[in-house]
Structure formats: C-alpha cells, structure tokens
Write a protein that binds this DNA or RNA. Structure first.
Lengths: 139, 139
DNA sequence: AATATACATTTGTACATACAATAGATGTTT
DNA sequence: AAACATCTATTGTATGTACAAATGTATATT
C-alpha cells in the first residue's frame, strides 16, 4: 500500500543527494564546499547590487546554513566582500568580487561538464513532464 | 540552452533535500539523526540476521557516512548490538535490538504521518511516470 | 526620552562528517 | 612458512553544521 509513492520518493531523494554529492566532489578539487558555491552564485545573481545575509538565506537551497561562516571562508579566499550597510547598520552588504566571478566561471564549467552526460537522456517534453510532476507532488 | 534540464534537476535536488530535511526535524524530537534512522532500518531489513559494517554501508543512501560512529550512538541508546563475527574476526555482526525495533515503529509512524498529505497528490500512473523518468535520467 | 520589542548578524559550543591513517585479520604467493 | 597484499573496521583530526545565546541596531510604545 502506497508502495509506488514511497518508491518514487526514494528515487527523488536518492537522485537529489547523489547529484549534490557528486558536485561536491568536483568542487572539492577547487577548495570550495557546496554551500560556499551556492552563496557565490547567489551573490552573482544579485548582479552587482549588494545583498544582506538574510537575503542570501532566503535564496539558499539548504536554509539552515550559517551564512556568516560561509561568507568568512569566501572573504579569506577573496571571492566576496562584506561591508556594513550604510542605511541600516544591522545589515551587511555582501558582494562578489572579480576574483569570485572568475572562480565561479571555472566552477560552472566543471559542474556543466558533470551534467553533460545526462542532458540528452530525456527529451524536452519528458523533462517538462518530470518537472511538472515533481511540482505537483509538492503542491 | 538546456534551461529545461537545469530547471528539472533543480526541482529534483530541492525536493529531495527538502524531504530529508523535514524528516530529520521529525526525528530530532526522538533524539535520532537521519543516518541513525537509516542504519536502524537497514538492520531491521536484515530480518534478524547479523550484518557487517560494510553491508550497511552498501545499503546506505549517503555512502560517505561513518558507520562505526553511527552504530556507537545506537549502542548507547540500546537500539543495536555489535559483536565480533565468529567466522571472520575482521567483521562485526550488527543487529537491531527489541528496543530498536520498537523505537523504529514509532519513528516510522511519524515519518508516514509526514508523507500523508503528499500521497494523494499524484495518481498511481503519474507516480509511475515520475519514477520512470528519474530512472531514465540517471541511466 | 526611556523602555520595550523586533530585527540582523555574529559567536559559542556541542555535535556530526569527511577522509586519511592505522590496526588487525585473512588470503595469496613464493 | 614467511612475506606481501588485501580486506574490514576503527580512530585521529581537521572541518563543517546546528542551534541557542549574545550583540548591536532600529522601530514602536508609553
């Protein structure tokens, strides 16, 4: 009973974790953890505009991360900048640096290379169906 | 380009992590972590027969776990037993205890209750399609 | 203005995780 | 049988994570 549901859920969980695990391994070579990679991409996504710690948090896949410490690591590597927000001194203005953008480009290439073998496995309409079904499942 | 692929992958990742995060929170109330829960279920799955650390590892969703330390925690709680394997002293015979089985039943109920609202969201044929598409994607 | 409440981030700390190094047992080769 | 390689599990250690408490700032209430 409900066997089919659990089998399907199991596939989703296993696939999701497997992908992030594999990507983590690719990133490790660059001395970057997956949360650091995600924060970098979020900073880039802000397109030059500084964003706050809580903004980053909102956009994170894993919401429980400690952004301060992740950003600490990015600062050390020179990939991000952190300044007090001038209009609200409680907040921090976080931005990605040129070095961060450059590194991110490298990382993206590596991640893309990882995905390459899978991209052709499903047709566009199959991908669409898959996406829609997952969204429906969560709705 | 390949936007649809990445959107779909993103849904899989996010959903997979979201489910395990939610389940972790449910388990936390019982003082059990998700890896511990998984190991317990694997031990139960052995149906009374003792299995080794490497057997457990093979069946884990997250393969990088340190089984020794997870089992340590289960021993402390009295949910598992660990003996030297008599036929191969390199190996350990791991089993679930009565207390472990009882606790696991409670945990299962809680996890089921979490899934309940989602079970009806997709029809059996939709679930089947979803499962098949994910498997095909990884193939 | 003083006090309280809410907000944004950081820090302390206990715990978990990753991975390499180690230890001990078994299997294989000569 | 001795030497070497392989298998299995544990441990050391550095790093990451979770979550509560603390810090500092802004806003609301009296």
């Amino acid at each position: 009973m409900n066997k089919k549901y659990y089998e399907t859920i199991f596939q989703i969980i296993r696939t999701g974790h497997w992908i992030t695990d594999q990507v983590s391994k690719e990133l490790k070579e660059f001395g970057i953890t997956e949360p650091q990679f995600n924060v970098l991409r979020i900073l880039r996504g802000a397109k030059g505009k500084p964003i706050s710690v809580s903004d980053v948090l909102e956009r994170m896949v894993q919401r429980n991360s400690n952004i301060t410490r992740i950003v600490d690591k990015l600062l050390i590597k020179g990939f991000a900048e952190r300044k007090e927000c001038p209009t609200n001194r409680r907040k921090m203005d976080l931005t990605i640096t040129e070095a961060g953008l450059k590194k991110l480009k490298e990382l993206d290439e590596r991640v893309e290379a990882f995905h390459q073998p899978f991209i052709g496995k499903l047709s566009p309409s199959e991908l669409e169906t898959l996406k829609k079904l997952i969204i429906k499942l969560k709705s």
